[in-house]
Design a protein around this nucleic acid. Structure first.
Length: 936
RNA sequence: GCCAAAGUGGCGGAACUGGUAGACGCGCACGACUCAAAAUCGUGUAUCUUCGGAUGUGAGGGUUCGAUUCCCUCCUUUGGUACCA
């Protein structure tokens, strides 16, 4: 007897897990193959201690289906898995429990692999990488050094070796390659340009200082997000609404000497690259938004003030055509000119305002963005065109870090400027006529300019080039592009990360020798940050200090580092000479499809794209975008359950009656709730606190409240895939997760429909077995009807998998099985191709059936059946309509004409009647050979 | 506030470039099997209906012979972003 029941499922799945391992069926053949390649990759997980919940495998199942499908279609498939194993949680865990991150991480990985194997993924585990493995991070460090050893050459728009730049300086100075960071001044001077002769005079230290301003990985004092509670610096994307992404602790600005990656130089290429790659529109939008390109002009205003020593003031504006509407200027409080331009009479007020700004934390600023504050400096700028004197204010709504840190305020056109003007009662010049109503600013581009001197009568759109040309001609302005994106902070004050492979001499970092890599993370039990801003490694004095003149960096890299290139390592993960061989990189090339969560839109994906671009420029890769196509699987949320405790008692009241009491909601473990009904006995045993709980029931039941929240241990709403596999098997889990809905959509987990999927698999199984449970397929030739069902299914599955529409392909398989069941099909010619099309979805069952059909090789080596269009066509006849003996039209009808078609024939005769009455119909709408409408 | 995506039965969701809305599954109802229940199998299941039909894809309008699909306005939800000049 071999019914498809729990024991049988367990036997089959266990059997094939072992067989697959034993036969090494997933082993990727190294070296180029004649077959076309296909690289399908999951975003590798951080191995958290909580293990996998049912949400994690969603993307992995999808990629597994694609990998198996592509293999059956004759592709040479690379489908690896690894672990993003450095990271803060392991370090936090170490601080709390004294267990070394290396140890807890290794344990967690083991658990992840166990769970993944149970789902039947076709990973070649011999390719596994872990970012925390010295053999891996040796190359993370090596790539970092390549970045450190590069600069961005704006002349050819690519990364070049820094040695080349030094040669340029030696022969021509830096006149042709001004500092990317325009604020940088030469040591001991106010100049930014030096000659070849100057360069030759500089000492080594100065030269390195200058080169540092060009390196793509550079060290600088930067304002960083300092989180006191975590004792570390956070990247911009780890700070949300002024608090830390993890833990929600307050974050303040602090100046520290940090590594940064000069990603801003690549802003334009990162933007352009989006046009060539297949990411969803929303993903591209998020990246475009993050990069934040805006085009405008830089304009210089002369300053007239009580003191005349002051230099010019530069502003950035996207609306240079509004220059005659400038009623005041605003500069950031941190702007370097504030001190110089402030008049004596305003000095006190300004100092007071600066103190106020200083006192405001990041959170205050975030929380009160609408609050209008500012102070007049006493200084005036001169409008270069009409000589008007414009008061200069300072205000925190102008950011020091963007543009020039100063703006020209046009209150009639800009909402913020308008509010500022109203608040401080500043006069407002209207340059857009009726477009401005006096109450709110209008940022239109359509207005015809007024009060605008030589721009009068021009539409704003036309006026922009006009005014920019004039500015350029007068030498007081120029076209300018600005980006919101900042350079990426690359230092973390943490233990559990890659050490920076540099040695400091005289406070200047020098690359370590390649042969000395990896610079291993020293073994330590001091994980606690020093609290001064330095990381835990600073505690290891012997490691930090090499000798009297040399020391190491106490920071480590962010987790983004290991993740920025792991997809390259997978092509050749055991290479000891290179980060991957050129042959492997050239063969596997770009990732054909990358599946992962949308939450990595701005950090991981941008850094990965950056690293690939740099490696490409330096000649290590022949492509400069890592991922051809990106699929973002939706999050699976948890469906939490609540009980309501009457305040101050042991009484729990059912949800329907809770409003009659004063209650506190408590999360309750979803596993002791059936639907919404609480299992009272299980509840009293769940926690000691609840042992003597009393219940206020409605209709004899305790009904829980519910809410959709993220799956989390603390909400007790986590569903473990292991449990589902225990009761239904991995094949059902796989198909059910796909069946839940569109892959890219977020959805709550519920098991309501899982029986349907399970029943389908049993029906499928039964197709191949007779009443006694023996495999029985007949060699008879299939009927046309059977062939139609089969080929329809193959066609649908093929197009669905290509479109990542797995929920509909599961439906299609269900329809197919229903139809074949009612046709009582047991023919090999139908069932053999059908089981192949099931294989990507339910590999265990497919493999078992395949073997039972008499095949000794794995089903993975079969080939996916081709569908034949001829079986999909309807049998049809053409029906001619003749008027006065002349054939005027032909209509096609199916032989097995359904009722609706008969109605169409009736309709047709109506047409004939109308026609013969001398009133031809206005229109006959025929779609696919059928009349769908007649307009009389 | 701005940007993007999405709103379809009791529920999850189908419907390819405009062409029979509600596939498939869950749930529910009825039936078969059973002493009975569970499991299983079968049938039905948008709403209203005077059983002729009528109405239906967030709301309102438009284009079209024909709109879930395209356009405009509004509402709601989700994601991103936040004084970026």
């Amino acid at each position: 007897m071999s019914d498809y029941n729990k024991e049988e499922i367990r036997r089959i799945e266990e059997k094939w897990r072992n067989e697959w391992k034993k036969r090494q069926v997933y082993k990727v053949q190294s070296g180029a193959s004649k077959k076309p390649k296909y690289y399908v990759l999951d975003m590798f997980p951080y191995p958290s201690g909580a293990g996998l919940h049912v949400g994690h495998p969603l993307g992995y199942i999808a990629s597994d289906i694609v990998a198996r499908f592509k293999r059956l279609k004759g592709f040479h498939v690379l489908h690896p898995m690894g672990f993003d194993a450095f990271g803060l949680p392991a370090e936090q865990y170490a601080i709390e429990h004294g267990i070394h991150p290396a140890k807890s991480t290794a344990q967690n990985i083991e658990n992840f692999i166990r769970q993944m194997d149970k789902i039947g993924f076709c990973y070649d585990w011999s390719l596994e990488v872990r970012t925390c493995d010295p053999a891996y991070y040796k190359w993370t460090q090596w790539i970092f050094l390549q970045i450190f050893d590069s600069w961005f050459n704006r002349k050819n728009n690519k990364a070049d070796r820094i040695a080349g730049l030094a040669r340029i300086f030696e022969t021509e100075g830096n006149a042709n390659h001004l500092f990317p960071n325009l604020k940088y001044k030469l040591p001991g001077s106010n100049e930014t340009v030096f000659t070849a002769a100057d360069w030759k005079k500089y000492d080594e230290r100065t030269r390195q200082e200058i080169l540092m301003q060009y390196r793509l990985a550079y060290l600088a004092y930067t304002d960083v997000n300092w989180c006191e509670a975590l004792g570390t610096v956070l990247a911009n994307d780890e700070v949300i609404n002024g608090v830390s992404y993890r833990g929600g602790f307050p974050v303040v600005k602090k100046q520290m000497r940090q590594w940064s990656l000069r990603i801003t130089e690549f802003a334009e290429r990162l933007l352009k690259g989006l046009d060539e790659i297949d990411f969803s529109d929303s993903m591209k939008d998020i990246q475009r938004n993050w990069i934040g390109k805006s085009t405008g002009a830089k304009v210089t205003f002369k300053i007239g003030s009580e003191k005349s020593k002051v230099a010019d003031m530069m502003v950035f504006t996207t609306r240079p055509e509004t220059i005659f509407g400038v009623d005041f200027m605003v500069v950031a409080p941190e702007h370097e000119m504030v001190k110089d331009i402030t008049s004596e009479s305003q000095r006190k007020a300004i100092e007071k305002y600066l103190a106020y700004v200083e006192s405001r934390s990041e959170i205050d600023r975030m929380a009160e963005v609408k609050k209008i504050t500012g102070e007049f400096t006493g200084a005036y700028a001169i409008n270069p065109f009409d000589g008007r004197e414009i008061p200069i204010w300072i205000s925190e709504y102008v950011l020091a870090g963007y543009g020039t840190g100063a703006i020209m305020a046009v209150p009639c056109g800009d909402e913020r400027d308008h509010k500022f003007a109203k608040h401080f009662n500043l006069p407002i010049t209207n340059i857009i006529g009726s477009y401005y109503n006096g109450k709110e600013a209008n940022p239109t581009y359509d207005a015809v300019l007024e009060n605008s001197d030589f721009l009068n009568g021009l539409q704003m759109k036309e006026a922009i080039p006009e005014v920019v040309n004039k500015l350029e001609k007068l030498g007081i302005g120029q076209r300018q592009v600005n980006y919101k994106m900042r350079d990426a902070g690359w230092s973390r004050q943490r233990y559990w990360g890659e050490p920076f492979p540099v040695i400091y001499r005289d406070d200047m970092p020098y690359a370590m020798d390649e042969k000395d890599l990896p610079l291993e993370l020293p073994d330590s039990n001091y994980f606690r940050p020093s609290g001064t801003g330095e990381g835990p490694l600073a505690n290891l004095k012997d490691w930090i200090r090499i000798n009297d003149h040399e020391r190491r960096d106490s920071n480590t890299m962010p987790t983004h580092a290991g993740a920025a290139w792991y997809f390259l390592r997978f092509t050749d993960p055991h290479n000891k000479e290179k980060f991957a061989s050129r042959e492997a990189l050239d063969y596997w090339g770009q990732v054909d499809v990358y599946i992962g969560g949308a939450e990595h839109a701005v950090a991981h994906l941008l850094y990965a794209r950056l690293w690939v671009k740099i490696l490409h420029d330096l000649g290590y890769l022949n492509f400069d975008e890592p991922f051809k196509k990106l699929i973002n699987q939706g999050k699976i949320t948890g469906d939490s359950r609540y009980v309501y405790r009457v305040r101050g008692t042991h009484k729990f009241v059912s949800a329907g009656l809770k409003d009659r009491y004063e209650t506190d909601p408590l999360h309750v473990d979803v596993n002791i709730v059936n639907g919404l009904e609480l299992n009272l006995e299980a509840f009293t045993q769940w926690k000691p606190d609840f042992a003597n709980a009393e219940f206020i029931l409605e209709e004899g039941q305790y009904i829980c409240g519910s809410a959709i929240e993220k799956m989390s241990k603390s909400y007790f709403n986590v569903v473990n895939p292991d449990d589902i596999i225990d009761s239904y098997g991995a094949d059902t889990l796989r198909m059910y997760e796909m069946f839940l809905g569109p892959l890219e959509q977020s959805k709550p987990w519920n098991t309501n429909g899982i029986d349907g999927v399970f029943k389908f698999l049993r029906k499928f199984w039964n197709l191949y077995h007779d009443q006694k449970g023996n495999v029985s397929v007949s060699g008879e030739g299939p009927t046309r009807e059977e062939l139609k069902v089969l080929h329809k299914t193959i066609k649908k599955i093929e197009s669905d998998v290509d479109n990542f529409s797995f929920n509909t392909s599961v439906s299609e398989l269900m329809i197919c099985v229903n139809e074949l069941t009612s046709l009582k099909t047991n023919k090999r010619a139908i069932l053999e191709p059908l089981v192949i099309s099931l294989a990507p979805f339910a590999p265990h069952m497919a493999e078992e059936l395949w073997e039972k059909l008499g095949h000794s090789e794995t089903i993975l080596n079969a080939s996916f059946p081709e569908y034949k269009e001829e079986y999909l066509k309807e049998n049809s006849f053409e029906y001619p309509i003749s008027i006065n003996g002349k054939v005027r039209a032909k209509m096609a009808f199916a032989l097995d004409m359904p009722k609706e078609d008969i109605e169409k024939v009736v309709l047709a005769s109506e047409i004939v009647n109308k026609w013969s009455e001398g009133k031809p119909p206005k229109k006959i709408i025929v779609v696919q050979g059928r009349i769908v409408n007649v307009v009389l």
